[in-house]
Amino acid sequence: MHDQNVDPAPPRRRGLVVLLGVAGAALAVAVGLSIGLAMPVLTAPSDDSSDVGFARDMSTHHAQAVEMSMLGVRQAGLEEVRRMALDMGLTQQAQIGTMRAWLKQWNVPPTGTGPRMAWMRDGGMSHDADMADQPAEDAPMPGMATEAEMARLGTLSGAQFDALFCDLMIRHHAGGIEMVDAVLRTDPEDEVRELAEAIKVGQQSEINALTQLKSRLSEQ
């Protein structure tokens, strides 16, 4: 043991190596954990990303469909329309909740300060700094009903309500699908893609159902 020929390293130097090793391992664990913890924050979509823009603007877009649907539950003539309105209203409100949860999880405000639909206007790519500086009017979202149309829908009931409801909702859904297609072209986060694809299929089948309903209504 004390034979210097067999073990040239003095015990003290070996102790130092062990100490360095332990310190290195501790540092490595700390670095590993920090990277692990920082990863979700660092990889979260940024405030001007198309994912964030979609989540915010689709929430606004959905909110109008929920408003129309609530009118439908109360004022529709046919039980069938009332039931479709209930289905669409509750579903879209739940989807708004999902999108708000993303924004919270991504550490960005639930609403944007920039112009609406900017993420979609530049081909779905996040716009660069000098473009964000340009004052831009809020673009109308595709398919949204105007204030006048919403006011008129609010005054109707029965068959008249059903007819306008079908028209407005078909247009609204078609616009929603446009927004979905735009975000799907940007290689979105997995959760965004899943919901966007579900919205596309769901709203397309609702457009089909509303179109059938409309043609039956006009026959009556």
Partner: peptide, 10 residues
């Protein structure tokens, strides 16, 4: 060691 623990840690 740092690299290994980082990978394993993550």
């Amino acid at each position: 060691a740092v690299l290994a623990v980082t990978i394993i840690g993550y």
